[in-house]
Amino acid sequence: MSKLDKYLRTDQMPHFACPGCTHGTAWAAMIRSIEQLGLDKNKTVMVCAIGCAGRLPVYLDFPSIRTPHGRALSYATGVKLANPDLNVIVFMGDGDASAIGGNHLIHTARRNLDITAIVATNEIYGMTGGQYAPTTEGGRFASTAPFGMIENQLDVCKLVEGAGASFVGRGDVYHVRELKDLIASAITHKGFSLVEVFTTCPTHFGRRNNMKKPSVLVEHLKNLTVSKKQAEKMTEEEVAGKLLRGILLKEERPEYVETYDRLAGFKEEGESV
């Protein structure tokens, strides 16, 4: 029995993930951050959709809703507006969040609704067998990119920053110790927060890109990112081509529901004028 069992539907174990998959590492970091913050399980709603990353609610003992592919953020918007007292956490795969759900991602960020989105970027569609995602690095191979990825790689963090998110963070499962605090900061932030977590899919991404061994793939992650703090001490050439890790943006901005309720004069029914 693990310390986190109280957050799990242990009767659903063993889980479905492939050996060496690190989505679970991101899930665990999220659960640890929930534990650290002492969030009430009953008042923390998990919204996920489809894909390996989105399978999470099956294993978590929270109120949870699994939506059609890509739609998690739209459902989460409804949950939050129905009951703003709830903590709403949305866990998505990179394809789920940024391809089929890309429009919802842009607009949920723009509204600055107080929900937390965690995007597990494994640079591939794991669930459907290794097709390329918007986040796949140029030149990488996927079942639908047999000659190498030719599209530009999407930077999810930059996208939501541009769209108006008030908290943006990036982490990866190699630097797992930083993840818990990063996700906790995102959850406590008032407004839309997004944390992109680089994870690994040895089964499909690794196998097609000469990194079949799970540890090799995690090692590859290690070199993909550099912490914001480290980067400050490095030269421009040294930082070039690396992704920044840590809190990339944090600004206090009016949150949607607060503003709505104030401007619209919202009253719960039965509340006196």
Binding site: R71, S74, Y75, A76, V79, L81, N103, H104, H107
Partner: peptide, 16 residues
Amino acid sequence: EDELASIGAIIGASAA
């Protein structure tokens, strides 16, 4: 942002 989102949001709100 679109009708996919509209119906998604009302299902979420109703579930809540």
